[in-house]
Simulated scan of single mutants.
Amino acid sequence: MLNSIRIYSYSRCATCRKALAWLQQHQIAHDLFDIVETPPSREMLRGASKQLASRKLLFNTSGVSYRALGADAVKAMSDDEALDALASDGKLIKRPFLITENGSVLVGFKPEIWAEALLR
């Protein structure tokens, strides 16, 4: 259980900026982390992977780091190898990456899903 919402963002990401503006507009307090400088821990990523329908949802498939690895290489990774890769390169992680106070994970920014999860 966390004390506050944690959001991992990249300052040059337009989607991240939209998500941060949305949080501010809705006056939702959060702790902000640079996903490149301070990526989510391996344990956070493991928890996220268990919540999501597919580990592929954790990957920023349109990013340079993902393309450099290659989709086939990522598919061939074991779960542990995938978690190691994600934890070591924040640009591989789908962003923004948000962990709610109750530990639920949101990846990417879809206002309707964020509203459902955060506006109660």
Rank of each mutant, 00 (worst) to 15 (best):
D72R: 00
V74G: 11
K56M: 12
D72Q: 00
L23S: 03
G103L: 10
G90Y: 02
A76W: 13
S65E: 06
Y8L: 09
P111F: 08
A76D: 14
D80S: 00
I113H: 02
E37Q: 05
A76M: 08
S104L: 15
P40N: 06
S88A: 15
K91H: 08
M1R: 00
M44E: 15
I99S: 11
L92H: 10
L45Y: 07
K56A: 12
L52R: 02
I93Q: 11
R42F: 07
A14S: 15
A76R: 05
Y8T: 01
M77L: 10
T61F: 12
G108D: 05
S54L: 05
T15F: 09
P96Q: 05
R67V: 05
P96L: 04
I28S: 14
A19C: 15
P40T: 07
D79Q: 08
M44R: 09
L98S: 00
F109K: 01
S78D: 02
L20V: 07
A82S: 14
R67L: 09
R6P: 04
E81R: 07
I7A: 06
F109E: 00
K56S: 09
S104G: 14
A21H: 01
E116Y: 08
K50G: 11
R42L: 13
H26W: 13
R12W: 14
S104A: 15
P40Q: 04
D31N: 01
A53D: 15
N102R: 09
Y8M: 09
T38M: 10
A76P: 04
A48G: 10
S49D: 10
W22M: 03
L57C: 08
Y8F: 14
R17D: 01
L119Y: 01
V107Q: 01
R120W: 14
S62M: 14
R67D: 00
G108Q: 01
M1Y: 00
R67G: 04
L98G: 00
A29Q: 06
P39G: 01
S9A: 13
D72T: 01
G90L: 06
V105C: 13
K110I: 11
L2K: 00
A117S: 08
D31V: 12
S88L: 13
V107C: 06
Y8P: 02
P40M: 06
L52P: 04
F59E: 04
V107N: 01
P111K: 06
H26S: 03
A85Q: 03
P40S: 07
L45S: 02
